[in-house]
Amino acid sequence: MTGQRASLIAIVVILGGLVGVSALNSSSPGDFGITLLSGLFQGMLLFLVASGLSIVFGLMDVLNLAQGSYFMVGAYVAYDAQHAGGLIDLTAVIPDPNLRFIIAVIAAVLAGALLGYLLERGLLRPLYSRPIFQLVLTFGVSLVALELVKFIWTTTPYSWTELFGVRESFFELFGQRFSTYRLFVVGMGGVLIVTIALLLQRSRIGIIIRAGVEDREMVQALGINVRAVFTLVFTLGCAIAAFGGAIAAPFLGASTTLGNAFLLQSIAVVVLGGMGSYSGTAVGSVLVGLAIAVAQDVAIGTDFAALPSITPMLLLVLVLLLRPSGLFGNSR
């Protein structure tokens, strides 16, 4: 299994490099810890977009270029539900901001699921015989989503203004203040990674998905309605992306640039990990998240202000140049 060895070595080298750069760049263990937490935080957000992208691509051969848009919509819905005014105003109904945040996240997930369902059933389904048009179509959907968001919420970015318990709590370590909320998101991402892995390994639907990645036709010939599984998986993928946007919103706010940024970053993740490989996506998310965090540190006070935004794309280009099948991908 030299391929796996090579992948492991590559992962260790990349991680080592990132940690090295970060350690050189930080003045104290606390600084370093902050970078690490920030990297893991971004990695988990990326995973929430990339997991759907990857599983859907593996199973259905559809690269959903609108996946980032679901993240963006999730962020807007959560923001809107949390704050006074806007489309949904819950401040009167649910005065407790913590509870309202939970409701806001649920609203975002439901919106993502509904929009995902509509996209698959209404628009993608007629096009399974024309795959190149599916790609074109999801690109079109991402444009429409962006325009709709601009139309509903205008182009002005929203930054999260309501300060509430979860978001504002910190803990101290090595003389640095760490955000509990970030840690919480990282923990939740970890739980989700494991849950999805278990689902894929153990549940019947997981077996169907893994079988479908190998040979869709045969799955159908066994009497399984693959189209229904497609719809389910696609809907779940979009719901998870919207969930990511919702839990990211307290930090990133809601803006029209989120969709494209997260799409490109998570495409970088998926290609880095190996298209369609679940473990690759999980590892790739963490690596790209860390890389962005390190780049953000390095860029502070230098002329490379663009570095963090270019980092994922640089990684993507690099991977495509060196090993297009990615870390865990089988070359096909």
Partner: peptide, 23 residues
Amino acid sequence: VTLRLKGVYFAIFTLAVAEMAFI
């Protein structure tokens, strides 16, 4: 770099390179 690969890689790659140039 990418035309040897499946078409979607090319699509992605061009998206990324154009975005990088834009930034």
